[in-house]
Amino acid sequence: MLMSSRNQPALLEYGPNGFRVLRTGRFVLCAVSGVEIGLEDLRYWSVEHQEAYASAELATKRLTGEG
């Protein structure tokens, strides 16, 4: 069965002021919790690690080595 791009995670390139879509999709996965984050809700990511986070708390946890 073929999946539409809407059911797959997007592939993004994270920059300091935004992100660029490399492969279309409707969400990305949080690098800490694994929860789906809709692209319209994505606010936290790491340019260095090239990964997304579902909340400021999860981003802090990951970036301080606690996650």
Rank of each mutant, 00 (worst) to 15 (best):
T24Q: 15
D41T: 08
R20Q: 15
C30K: 01
V21C: 06
A52S: 15
G38F: 08
W45D: 00
E40G: 08
T24C: 10
E48D: 14
E48C: 06
N17V: 13
R26V: 02
I37W: 00
A56L: 14
E36D: 10
L22M: 15
G38S: 15
K61L: 13
R26F: 06
L42Y: 06
F19P: 01
L39D: 04
S46H: 09
A52Q: 03
R23P: 03
F27D: 02
V32A: 05
G25M: 05
T24I: 10
L63E: 13
T24E: 15
A54H: 01
A31I: 04
F27Q: 07
L63K: 08
W45V: 00
N17Y: 14
L42R: 02
L22G: 08
E51M: 12
F27Y: 15
R62Y: 11
E57W: 11
F19Q: 07
I37H: 00
L22S: 13
R26P: 01
S46I: 08
A52F: 03
K61E: 15
G25W: 00
L39G: 06
C30T: 01
E36W: 01
R20F: 10
I37F: 04
G18Y: 11
Q50P: 08
S55D: 06
S55L: 02
T60Q: 15
A59V: 05
G38E: 14
L22W: 09
E36M: 06
R20K: 15
V21P: 02
F19M: 09
A56Y: 13
S33Y: 03
K61R: 13
E51Y: 07
H49F: 12
W45G: 01
R43V: 10
E40K: 10
A31G: 04
